[in-house]
Structure formats: structure tokens, C-alpha cells
Computed example of a mutant assay.
Amino acid sequence: MSLIESTVHGQVHELRLARPPVNALNPELCADLVQALHEAPARGARGIVLVGGPKVFSAGLDVPYLLSLGEDQDALLRAWTVFFSAARALAECPVPVVAAMAGHAPAGGCVLALCCDYRILADGPYRIGLNETQVGLVAPEGIQALLARVVGPHRAERLLVAGAMPDAQQALQIGLVDELVHIDDVATRARVWLEELLQLPHMPMLETRAIARRDVIAALADERIDLPRFVAQWSHPDTQAALRAMLARIGK
């Protein structure tokens, strides 16, 4: 059974992350997302809405699962590899994708959103950002580039070093998200945005999009993620202590 629920709205297909309670990104969910992103255009999708859960779009990588792998570097590398495969599938998707976030999007959830064409966040007490330093991780250079692409290099530096998570209004002000709407309207507004975009002449829109998004794909190149180095850092005492402290705070 897939962890992605697909709903067809004419030319727009909705892909919903379906791993409650917080859509933690384990290998199965990431692999199912890759498959769904490949299948939707083949089934006639000319636009895709990526939807998460209520209150939490995705809480990021499944840290308890990753910690359960212990010192198994090969297993850790496989888990992170499939996550970045999902990010690349979004970045390389041949049709526009809107992130419809009816809740928080920290860390890996924010990465998925940054790989989309457009980001809509629920207006309210919701936060989005790359909080890696807060939990003992180093955001790879390519991921940092994705953030700098939308908020500018200086602001990205401030956010990344602090592991900051701007609230909805701040995220809109700095361009990290494109729109805020009522939590109940996030997915609907995403479909409307896509339907309006799809009224444009199709080939020129897609070709222009492809040129404009080359840097998104380039940011996710293997050499800019450097997964072996990232996975090696996973075992650093500072990282392990911060991750376990985070789990203790949330009662895991």
C-alpha cells in the first residue's frame, strides 16, 4: 500500500503524503513519492499539488528510524539517498509542482517545499525552515543554495547558521513562501494557481520554466550534496547528542 494518496482534479493531480501523524520521511514514504511523481505526468497530469498533513506538512526525516540504524553507515547512506531522490524527483518533475503546506515544514519538509515551483503555507502559528543546526546537522551546500535562491544569500546565511524557523508571516515577507491562505484553503488555492498557470501557451511556459529551474536541479547534484561526508558527520558526538535531546523534548 502506497504512502502517497493520489487524487485527480482534471489536469491537476494531488499527491498527499499519508504517513501520520507528521509525515516523517522514512525510506518507504520517499520511495513512494518518487514513484508517484514519475507516474502522475504519465497519467496526464499537467500540474501537481504536493499536500501534507493537517498542522504538519512534513516533520522532516524520520529521526527515530535513522537513530535505530546505529553505526550502520551503509543503511544510513541508503536512507539519505532515497530522501534526496525524492527531492530530485520534485526538482526534475516535467510539470509544475505546488507545495500546499497546511502546517509546519521543518528541515526535510522545507527541502521538499524548496524543490517545488510555488509554496503556499497556512496562515497561522506555523513555521518553515532549515533548522538543521538546532538538531546537530549540517545542511549540505546544495540545500543551502536552494534556500539562498529564494531568500537571497545574506538572509539565507543568517537563517541557516541559526537554524531559524520563520513563522508564516515572516516566511512570506522574506519570500520563503509565496502565499498565505486559511488552513482549510491551502490545497484548493494550490490547484487554482496551477489551473491559472496552465492557461498559458503550454510549450513556452514549460520551456521557460525548465530554463529558470536549472539551478534547482544543479543544487541537488551529487557533488553539492556529498552524501558520504554528510553521513559520516551523522556519527559526530555533537550531532548524536543534539538529536537525542530533540527526541527527549518531544517525548520519543
Rank of each mutant, 00 (worst) to 15 (best):
N131R: 06
I143P: 02
A113N: 04
A122G: 15
M165E: 09
A107K: 11
G142H: 06
A156F: 10
Y126R: 04
P140C: 00
L147I: 04
P125L: 08
D123V: 00
P153R: 15
V111I: 15
Q144D: 05
V135Q: 07
E157R: 15
G124W: 06
D117I: 06
V135W: 07
R158S: 14
Q170W: 11
I143K: 06
V151N: 01
V151R: 08
P125F: 05
R155F: 08
L146F: 13
P166W: 04
G152F: 08
R119K: 14
L114G: 03
Q144H: 07
L146W: 08
A156Y: 02
G129T: 01
V135P: 03
R155Y: 12
P166V: 00
A122C: 14
V161S: 14
G152S: 06
D117L: 07
L137T: 00
R155S: 11
V138M: 10
L159Q: 03
A139S: 15
L112W: 12
V138A: 10
L137G: 01
V151E: 02
G129E: 02
A139E: 10
P106K: 01
A105N: 07
G129K: 01
Q144V: 02
L114E: 04
C110K: 03
A162R: 15
I120L: 08
P153V: 12
L160H: 08
A145R: 14
G129C: 04
R119N: 05
G124T: 07
V111M: 11
C115N: 10
I128L: 11
P106I: 00
Q169I: 00
G129S: 11
L146E: 04
G108I: 09
Q170P: 01
D167Y: 13
R149A: 12
L159P: 02
C110S: 14
A162S: 14
R149F: 10
D123L: 12
L114N: 01
D117F: 06
P125N: 08
L112A: 12
C116D: 04
A162P: 01
V151D: 02
H154F: 14
Q144A: 15
I120E: 00
P125I: 07
Q134A: 11
A105K: 04
V135N: 12
A148G: 12
P140K: 00
A105P: 01
C110Y: 07
L159H: 07
A148L: 11
A156E: 00
A107C: 15
P153D: 10
C116K: 08
A162W: 03
L160A: 05
V111C: 06
R158M: 15
V150C: 09
L112S: 10
M165G: 00
Q169C: 05
V161G: 03
V151H: 04
D117P: 02
L146Y: 11
C116I: 07
A122I: 12
G129M: 07
V161L: 13
Q144E: 15
M165W: 02
G163D: 07
H104K: 13
A156S: 06
E141L: 13
I128C: 00
G163F: 08
P166D: 01
A168L: 06
A122P: 04
G109R: 04
T133S: 12
L159F: 10
L137N: 03
L160S: 02
L137K: 00
C116L: 05
A139F: 11
Y118F: 14
A107W: 10
I143F: 05
T133M: 03
A145G: 05
G129L: 06
L147R: 04
A164G: 11
P140M: 05
R127A: 13
P140F: 01
G109Q: 05
